Computed example of a mutant assay.
Amino acid sequence: MVRRWRLAILTVLCGALIAAVKLGDGSPWGAALILAIFLGLAFAVSPQLFPRPETAAEARADGRPVVYWRPGCPFCIRLRARLGPEASRLHWVDIWSDPEGAAAVRAITGGDETVPTVVLDGEGYVNPDPAWVRDRIVPAV
């Protein structure tokens, strides 16, 4: 569990340290701004940004697309952010908390755990363009 939050915790600690230095220099507004920026960054790299993680077995149950991801991955954050509310149409499997999901990614990628790995209609795609994924999950109007 701590592994998933490690990057977010480190980001908050760095922000608090820099804010304390700014506060010691007599700049309370600068300290508050720095702390706010680092808290935003911590949220961006935390598991909270993503929909509720599922296991690989749960994700395969209904045939919806599956995204294998891990906390702190900048490419996963980019995919999640660019999909916006459409991200809820996908299953999100955290490979750090689900060994079966990590094994599925290794099978698709040839042995490594490159994420995000998206599975659409049984076919795996490693780090696909978010616009390409959105085009496949949102029906044309």
Rank of each mutant, 00 (worst) to 15 (best):
A140L: 15
R4A: 15
V105I: 14
V119C: 04
D62W: 02
I9N: 05
A44G: 15
A107S: 05
A16H: 01
L23Y: 03
R52I: 10
G40H: 08
R89P: 01
V2P: 00
R89F: 00
F50Y: 15
Q48T: 09
G15H: 05
D135K: 12
W69P: 03
P65M: 07
A81K: 11
F50L: 11
G111N: 06
I108L: 03
P53K: 12
A8L: 12
F75G: 08
W132G: 04
P128I: 09
V93P: 02
V115Y: 02
W92Y: 07
S88Y: 03
V141T: 12
A61M: 02
A81I: 03
K22N: 05
F50H: 08
H91P: 01
L33Y: 01
R78M: 12
G110R: 06
I95L: 14
A131E: 13
G111S: 04
A42Y: 07
A81M: 10
K22Q: 11
V93A: 06
Q48K: 13
D135Y: 03
S46A: 05
P99W: 10
L41Q: 10
A32P: 00
A57E: 13
G124N: 04
P130C: 11
T114I: 11
W29Q: 07
R80E: 15
P28V: 06
E123C: 00
D112M: 08
H91E: 01
P71D: 10
D98K: 15
V105G: 06
D25L: 15
A140T: 14
S27T: 02
C73N: 07
L83H: 12
E123N: 02
R4M: 14
G24N: 05
A16Y: 00
L35Q: 05
D112R: 14
R78S: 08
G110N: 09
A19V: 01
N127Y: 00
R136C: 01
V12H: 02
R78F: 04
V118K: 01
V138R: 09
D25A: 14
T117P: 08
R106S: 07
W5N: 14
A32Y: 00
W69V: 13
P53C: 14
R64V: 03
V67S: 09
L79G: 07
T11Q: 08
G30A: 06
G15Y: 08
G84H: 06
G110K: 06
A16T: 02
R60N: 00
D112H: 13
D129H: 04
I95W: 11
V2M: 14
D129T: 03
V118Q: 02
T117K: 07
T114P: 01
A42E: 06
V119Q: 03
I108A: 15
T55G: 09
G124F: 05
L120N: 02
W92M: 08
H91T: 04
L13G: 08
P85L: 12
L7M: 14
S88L: 10
P139D: 07
A102N: 13
A56E: 15
W29L: 14
C76Q: 02
G122M: 11
V21S: 03
R106L: 06
P53M: 13
S46N: 04
